[in-house]
Amino acid sequence: MSTTSSTLEIAGRAGRLHVHHWPCENARYVLLLSHGYGEHAGRYEHVAQALVAHGADVYAPDHHGHGLSEGDRALLTDFDAVQVADLDAVADLAVAANPGLPLVLLGHSMGGLIATRYAQLHGERLRGLILSGPALGAENPMFGLLELDPIPDVPLDPAVLSRDPAVGEAYAADTLVYHGPFQRPTLEAFLASAKAIEAGPGFGDLPLLYVHGTEDQLVPYPLARAVVERLQGPDSEHHAYEGAMHEVLNETNKDEVIAAVTAFVDRVL
């Protein structure tokens, strides 16, 4: 079963937001998807199709400054005030279109940081939370770039995304992906949000699925795991994929990862 995605625009906190929607007839739940830094929600077509086949009505915004949404490219200044608030506006839209259906949130990398903060601030809206290689941990080596002036032009190396070389090649060729260096306000916003997350609160009784590659060079697994373990509640499930890199949903074992996602959703529904 596959579906044709449609797109819509809504007013975000800092500009127009482009929202991808993969509709599902007779949906059992709503899945809100939060993509990573520099990329866009269109890269999750295969994930969305698998979730639609599983019974999800899928909504995924291009975050402010990313993809087809407005804003200076990959410039982030305040996650709570913009990205988390924007995600809540998309949740409003998705829930209004599917009254009574449970809401599940999936966030990858930066989108996992946004999803974590969303769960801290709006966890009562969620039936389940799924974090994929979430960009958590104020000790991440990338914050060392803030000590340099100017910040060097070191764009992300596509080769560290997945053991499947086709993933890095497609990423490098994608004109909607931001391929430039980190900007100082963006790194400062990342660090501020990482610290706010570590200050709590925890997830309480919210069911959690946490998936991460052990060879992730962008978000070291031990750093993120330590934060997740401090926040998690009693109903939490962890999968560390040996040898996998940053994008486990695009890895050579992606079918195994997506199966873990759908099994988790079945359980929490």
Rank of each mutant, 00 (worst) to 15 (best):
Glu229Asp: 10
Phe190Thr: 01
Arg43Tyr: 05
Tyr221Gln: 14
Ala192Glu: 08
Tyr178Asn: 09
His239Thr: 00
Ala240Val: 09
Gly12Ala: 13
Val265Gly: 03
Glu9Tyr: 07
Thr262Trp: 04
Pro207Ala: 15
Asp205Glu: 12
Ala14Asp: 11
Glu242Gly: 06
Arg267Ile: 07
Ser2Ile: 12
Glu198Tyr: 05
Asp157Arg: 05
Thr175Cys: 02
Pro23Glu: 12
Leu131Trp: 03
Arg267Ser: 08
Leu146Trp: 09
Cys24Tyr: 02
Tyr221Trp: 12
Arg267Thr: 10
Tyr221Leu: 13
Tyr210Ile: 06
Ala196Gly: 07
Lys254Ser: 11
Leu51Gly: 08
Ala260Ser: 15
Pro150Met: 14
Ile10Gly: 06
Asp86Leu: 05
Arg28Ser: 14
Leu33Asn: 03
Gly233Ser: 05
His64Phe: 05
Val265Ile: 15
Trp22Arg: 11
Leu93Asn: 00
Asp205Ser: 11
Met1Thr: 14
Thr214Ser: 15
Ser193Thr: 12
Glu139Leu: 12
Asp164Val: 11
Ala11Ile: 13
Ala170Met: 06
Arg43Thr: 06
Thr262Val: 13
Thr262Ala: 07
Phe182Lys: 02
Met142Asp: 02
Tyr210Trp: 14
His20Leu: 13
Glu70Gly: 12
Pro61His: 08
Tyr44Ser: 08
Leu191Phe: 02
Ala172Cys: 03
Arg16Met: 08
Leu129Asn: 06
Gly144Met: 02
Arg43Glu: 06
Met110Glu: 03
Thr3Cys: 06
Leu208His: 02
Gly55Ala: 08
Ile130Cys: 14
Ala192Leu: 05
Ala60Gly: 04
Leu156Asp: 02
Glu256Asn: 09
Val90His: 10
Leu17His: 10
Gln217Glu: 09
Glu25His: 11
Leu8Ala: 10
Pro152Trp: 01
Leu269Val: 09
His63Arg: 13
Arg163Asn: 15
Met245Thr: 00
Phe264His: 05
Leu206Gln: 01
Leu93Pro: 03
Gly112Ser: 13
Asp80Ala: 05
Thr214Met: 12
Leu126Phe: 07
Tyr241Trp: 07
Thr262Met: 09
Glu9Pro: 01
Glu256Asp: 13
Pro141Thr: 10
Pro207Ser: 15
Gly15Gln: 08
Arg73His: 12
Leu146Thr: 10
Leu32Gly: 00
Arg230Met: 11
Leu31Pro: 07
Leu8Ile: 15
Pro150Lys: 15
Gly180Trp: 10
Gly112Pro: 07
Gly202Val: 05
Gly112Tyr: 01
Ala91Val: 14
Phe79Val: 14
Ala240His: 12
Thr77Arg: 12
Tyr59Trp: 15
Ala170Pro: 01
Gln217Cys: 03
Asp72Glu: 15
Ala226Asp: 03
His64Arg: 07
Ala172Ser: 01
Arg43Val: 03
Ser162Ala: 08
Arg125Lys: 10
Pro185Phe: 00
Tyr29Arg: 12
Pro61Tyr: 02
Thr186Glu: 03
Ala56Trp: 01
Thr77Trp: 02
Gln49Arg: 13
Asp92Asn: 12
Ala119Gly: 05
